[in-house]
């Protein structure tokens, strides 16, 4: 396990390294751990925001805002629900919506006591983190046309209907590629 105080590691940190740094930030406001997270995520966040059309300085502002949010909300990060990369992705997604589009992203609070049919924590542990490792591996094997639709969906800030318009693909083709990708990644659950 990498330590937070080490200088920037030459190899990419593992999910365990990222989770270790998050815990150090949450429990003791560890600035070295934060710097390590910062070095790992900000070049990727910058690429993410630039792809969605934020120009240089604007992208850097959102990157800074995302990382400050990571610092401030660190104690809310729950490793049983998502990996650090996924949690940071959701923060970046929401900050992009807020700062670029001036809108909210309405969400369900998984801890809300009124929530209908909440998942129990043991099920959650299994589904969240193990699924994520599996998803990561499975994504490498997606056919290129399915992977490309997913990249457009996540990076270009376009709903699938707009992707159809931009690419000239029939809407049914875009939907079926998304469905096939979801099936291949085994992301959809049987619905009663």
């Amino acid at each position: 396990m990498a330590t937070a105080s080490a200088s920037a590691p030459s190899a990419s940190p593992t999910q365990d390294d990222l989770a270790f740094w998050m815990a150090a930030i949450a429990t003791r406001q560890d600035r070295a751990a934060f710097a390590a997270l910062f070095r790992h995520f900000t070049p990727r966040l910058r690429a993410f925001l630039q792809r969605a059309g934020a120009a240089g300085a604007a992208a850097d502002d959102v990157v800074q805002d995302v990382m400050l949010t990571v610092w401030r909300l660190a104690s809310r990060y729950d490793p049983s629900r998502a990996t650090v990369s996924t949690w940071v992705f959701t923060i970046a997604r929401n900050r992009r919506i807020d700062q670029v589009r001036r809108e909210r992203h309405p969400e369900v609070d998984p801890d809300d006591v009124e929530l209908i049919d909440p998942a129990d924590s043991a099920e959650q542990q299994v589904s969240a983190v193990q699924d994520e490792a599996r998803i990561r591996n499975a994504m490498a094997g997606l056919p290129p046309e399915q992977a490309e639709i997913l990249r457009r969906a996540y990076f270009d800030d376009l709903p699938h209907t707009a992707i159809a318009e931009q690419t000239g693909l029939p809407l049914g083709t875009v939907k079926s590629r998304i469905r096939l990708a979801l099936a291949r990644l085994r992301l959809t659950y049987d619905q009663p």
Binding site: A8, F38, R39, H40, T42, P43, R44, L45, R46, A47, F48, Q50, R81, A82, T83, S85, T86, W87, V88, F89, T90, A92, R93, V108, P110, L115, I116, D117, P118, A119, S127, A128, D131, E132, I135, R136, M139, L150, R151, Y154, F155, L182, L185, L187, T188, Y189, D190, Q191, P192
Partner: peptide
């Protein structure tokens, strides 16, 4: 709010976002 099955699907779709973010080529220095 009412549908756990779709909540699970969304959580997994967010994990796709996390995986795509992690796999992006770096833009600029850390």
């Amino acid at each position: 709010w009412f549908c756990r099955a779709c909540r699970d699907t969304v959580a997994n779709a967010e994990a796709v976002g996390g995986a795509l973010l992690a796999a992006l080529p770096a833009a600029g220095d850390g």
